[in-house]
Amino acid sequence: MSIKTEKPLLQLNNLSAYFHDKRILKDVNFSVENSKVVSIMGPSGCGKTTLIRCVNRMHEMSPGGTAAGSILLDGEDLNQLNTITVRRKIGMVFQRPNPFPTMTIYENVIAGYLLNGIKIPKKLSLEIVEDSLSKAALWDEVKDSLNKKGTYLSGGQQQRLCIARALAMNPEILLLDEPTSALDPKATSRIEELVVQLKKNVTILMVTHNIAQAARVSDDTAFMYLGELVEYGSTKEMFTVPKDKRTEEYLTGKFG
């Protein structure tokens, strides 16, 4: 397992996670460098979603969810921070697009501010909306319908709206939990392009069960199996010369 020498942005140390007594993650160690796209792949039930839900501390909200070990962001232990700050710094996009149904497109983008009761001047909020929607490659499509409900958009547009919503909080890391699993192929490829562009602005951790997707978009890839991190390294290397037998089997479609 290759440990990078450069100072990592995110570092997981002996991370274990549980649902009640059931252990979902087993002593996972890995680190993520700045401005990279990292894919986390593995068969379903391997704990990949739980892993990223630990990173923004959403896992502990699920009934019976607990975690052990530590996660460092810029050297700071996330467990020492409050969840408000953690989730401000680490944004998340979910499997299914989930814009807030009561809010307009505009409001959805600045939902983080509205929800958290953070007052910002109108001019700034306009800037944030345009900037975030542009980064999410959605601005041109919706700039004339900002006052329509978010649910009015197509599935792929909704998902990009959700990405814009996460970007609006100016996060350091963006977690994507199988962001294309509910989308059609065309919308999927738009999201994939977007992910590659986005790494200029934000470091991305993406869960996927789609091997080809991991190959297309990510710089590094982590392969997980039964709650363990089996292999982690440069995507190119892993896809050409996997070190672990299980990785090879997974990549060649033997299971999962």
Binding site: I84, T85, N116, I118, L124, I128, M169, N170
Partner: peptide, 21 residues
Amino acid sequence: MDTVYLKRILEDEKAIRQRIL
């Protein structure tokens, strides 16, 4: 975009403490 200002209001410790309270 005034990211410095944005960072300041987003990371305003006092506001966060108030929200938690």
